[in-house]
Computed example of a mutant assay.
Amino acid sequence: MIRFALRIPEDLHARLTTQAAADRRSINSEILHLLDVALASASPDAGSPGGDPATPAQLRGKPDTSPA
C-alpha cells in the first residue's frame, strides 16, 4: 500500500470525520471508500466521446440558428 500525505481544509476534515463516524470507519477508510465509489460511478464514456474524460461532451439538441 502507498502512503500519501494530503492537505485538506478544516471544514472538509470535519465533514469527513462526521461521515466516517456515522459509517463506523476510520477517516482513512472513509476516504478510500468515497474515492472508490466516485471512481466506480464515473463510467469511461459518461458524456465524453471516446471515453476520454479530458474531452468535452458534444452539445445535444438543435444548434442555435437565431441571428445574433
Rank of each mutant, 00 (worst) to 15 (best):
A40H: 15
H13I: 03
S29G: 08
P9L: 02
S41I: 05
S41A: 10
P44K: 12
Q58D: 15
Q19L: 11
P49Q: 04
A14I: 09
R60P: 07
H13R: 05
A20V: 05
R15T: 01
R60K: 11
A57G: 11
K62M: 00
L39H: 04
A20L: 09
T17V: 01
T55N: 04
G50T: 13
D45M: 07
S48V: 14
A5Q: 14
P49M: 04
L16H: 04
D64C: 00
L59N: 06
P63C: 06
P9M: 02
P56Y: 03
P63H: 04
P49C: 03
S29C: 02
A38P: 08
T18W: 09
A21K: 13
I8K: 15
D23R: 05
A38R: 06
G50P: 09
G51L: 03
G50S: 13
I27M: 01
G47C: 09
R60Y: 08
R24I: 03
Q19K: 11
H33I: 14
D11S: 12
S41M: 14
S26R: 04
A14C: 12
H13A: 11
E10G: 06
I2M: 12
L39T: 10
L35G: 15
I8S: 14
L59F: 05
K62I: 02
A68I: 07
R25G: 00
A21S: 14
R24F: 07
P56I: 01
P53W: 00
L59R: 10
L12V: 07
L6K: 01
P9V: 07
D11I: 02
V37I: 12
P63F: 10
R60T: 13
L34E: 05
D45I: 03
Q58H: 13
A54P: 06
A40S: 15
G47D: 02
A54C: 06
R3Q: 03
I2R: 14
Q19P: 10
V37S: 11
A21W: 12
S41C: 06
V37L: 15
N28M: 14
T17P: 08
L32Q: 13
A21D: 13
D11G: 02
K62S: 00
L16P: 06
D45Y: 13
E30N: 10
G51F: 07
N28Q: 15
T18Q: 11
R7V: 09
D52Y: 11
A57H: 11
A21I: 04
S26K: 03
S29L: 03
P53H: 02
R3W: 02
D52N: 15
T18D: 04
A21C: 05
T18R: 09
G51N: 00
G51C: 05
A38G: 06
S66V: 02
A20P: 05
A14M: 10
F4N: 11
L39I: 09
Q19N: 11
